[in-house]
Simulated assay, not measured.
Amino acid sequence: MPGGRLTHRDRRDIGAGLAEGLGYAEIARRIGRPTSTISREVARNGGPGGYRADHAHLATRRRARRREAIPHRDPATPPDAYGRDPDAVRDFAEQLAALMVRTGVPRMAARVLARLITDDSGSLTAADLVQRLRVSPASVSLAVRYLEGLEVIRRVREPGHRRRRYVIDDDVWLRAWMTSAQQHAMWAETAQRGVDVLDPATPAGARLAHMSQFFATLSDDMSGGSGTVEDALTVLAALRHAGTSLPVAQVATALGWPPDRVTEALSRAGPDRLTPAQLGALQGRA
């Protein structure tokens, strides 16, 4: 029945549908269930790439046994202070965690990080995480240690308490981006040392030279090196200071850059960044 619990056969049909590359809506039509039921089922059990019918069925039975051991809440969960459905927020957190797992993040670490991201405060205690994820304190501790090692979260002590909170900062993604850029630079430097050892004229040396160039370019692009938005801002600052349009060659001479670098920077600030209305307004004033 559409309103009943998923059966083992339903889950096998879901697994088969995912293997065929079907969308949630098509799978839902096949087994006569709401699409939201399929999306929640898959998100809670490894995501589209990790869903296994037998594992999902066993996991559901284990969750049911744990729920029997705690008081049941009112199935009609009231909205939170912002009028949001807490069940929908929780389901989204699990979908976000499933995406992280597909990119290589350990499952428990992904679930902890997803809960921190989707919590308005951006911080939770270990007890909060144990209660919301319904896992052991040891599981939370291992996940937190992993995330701290990546410098994605940090722990702070609550004033007047021994209790600690785990916090995710709003600039975490910028810091992660810059850390990644630094790691790419290390790859480039190490590969270049390999070129010097193996000789660039050899197949292995040439391979390492390509590797070094690739990671060096990636690091430059990510950290704001030449050929990025920083160059475009520098050229625009030069033109603003001059107070008039200048030939590329004159700008390049003033900045001490090759003309190609100025041309590349200007292409990043081309008219395609403006809307038709903005272009029209500017042309009308010319």
Results as ranks from 00 to 15, higher is better:
H72C: 08
A81R: 10
E148M: 07
V89F: 03
D87L: 12
R84Q: 08
L133N: 06
V140P: 09
P78D: 01
F92D: 02
S139A: 15
G122F: 10
R132T: 02
A110N: 04
A98T: 04
P79C: 03
D120Q: 04
D74P: 00
R66K: 10
L142K: 14
S141P: 00
V152R: 13
R90L: 13
V135H: 11
P137I: 01
E148R: 10
L129H: 08
E151R: 07
T103C: 04
R111I: 11
P71Y: 14
V152N: 02
P106A: 02
G104K: 06
R84A: 07
S141A: 03
E94S: 09
G83Y: 10
L142I: 10
A126M: 03
A97D: 01
R134Q: 07
M100A: 14
A110W: 10
P106I: 01
T77G: 03
A88T: 05
R67Q: 14
D85A: 10
V112A: 05
L150T: 12
I117W: 04
A93K: 10
D120H: 09
A93Y: 11
P78N: 04
S121K: 15
L129K: 10
P137E: 01
A110G: 05
A64W: 14
A143M: 03
I117Y: 03
D119A: 15
A69V: 07
A69N: 08
V140L: 11
R66N: 07
A109S: 15
L116Q: 09
P86N: 06
F92K: 02
S136Y: 01
A110T: 01
L99G: 02
S121H: 15
A64P: 07
A127Q: 09
T118G: 07
E148A: 04
L133S: 04
Y82H: 09
R66T: 14
P71Q: 12
S136R: 00
R157V: 15
V156H: 14
V156Q: 13
D120L: 14
E148Y: 00
R84V: 02
S123P: 01
A64S: 14
R67F: 09
R63K: 11
R73P: 01
A69H: 10
